[in-house]
């Protein structure tokens, strides 16, 4: 069960990914391809048996939707896809539940390891953590995650760039541990 097998169900996978993570629907083809490549990488890390089950589940998902909605899963509107996946997630059959769980996990892991995504949600660990970011004991903030001075209150700089800080470890390649923010897509 290879990479090509996953590609054979890519329309279903794309539709499922857009259901699990609404922001994915806003990506252009190139940006989605970046995420899709990461899903494929995660797929290839699975055992052959799990890979077989992933492809089988996506194939079944496409056609089970025909029975319920009269259209394949990948042709359904977001609302129908959401209701359908939610119903499968509550199935009495553990194989069905774990099928949803397995696809969902791959999509979420691929999405939430994208540097642009982690940057967008405000996750910004730094090698020199405390040197750069002392706790704000009583932050004066609005609820949209910005402090009164306009900087994200988690300590990243106000200009929106990742806080590089002094990466004093011995890695010449260490620009920033997480947020190298290629901005290749805006989640």
């Amino acid at each position: 069960m290879s990479y090509d097998d996953l590609r054979s169900v890519r329309h279903t996978l794309t539709a499922a990914a857009r259901t699990f993570v609404p922001e994915i629907a806003d990506l252009d083809d190139d940006d989605w391809r970046v995420v899709e490549c990461d899903i494929e990488r995660l797929f290839l890390q699975r055992t052959p048996e799990v890979r077989r089950q992933v492809v089988l589940f996506l194939t079944a998902l496409e056609f089970l939707a025909v029975l319920r909605f009269g259209r394949p899963f990948s042709h359904l509107a977001l609302d129908s896809r959401t209701r359908f996946l939610e119903s499968l997630q509550r199935s009495s059959m553990v194989a069905v539940r774990r099928g949803v769980w397995g696809i969902r996990t791959m999509v979420l892991v691929a999405w939430y390891t994208q540097p642009a995504t982690t940057f967008a949600i405000g996750y910004a660990p730094q090698f020199d953590g405390w040197t750069l970011r002392r706790p704000v004991s009583t932050p004066i903030t609005s609820t949209d995650g910005e402090s009164a001075n306009g900087a994200p209150a988690n300590g990243a700089p106000a200009n929106g760039a990742p806080a590089n800080g002094s990466l004093a470890n011995d890695n010449p390649a260490n620009d920033n541990p997480v947020n190298d923010n290629p901005a290749h897509h805006a989640p």
Binding site: T19, F20, V21, P22, E23, T82, L85, E86, Q89, R104, T105, L108, V109, W111, Y112, T113, T117, T118, A120, I121, G122, Y123, P125, G145, V178
Partner: peptide, 22 residues
């Protein structure tokens, strides 16, 4: 990190995304 938190939350979609953006 976010990818662990994301998969640990139950569910998906808009509610899930809102929690992650917090």
């Amino acid at each position: 990190p976010p990818f662990v938190v994301a998969r640990s939350l139950t569910g998906f979609g808009a509610d899930h995304s809102r929690m992650m953006h917090a």
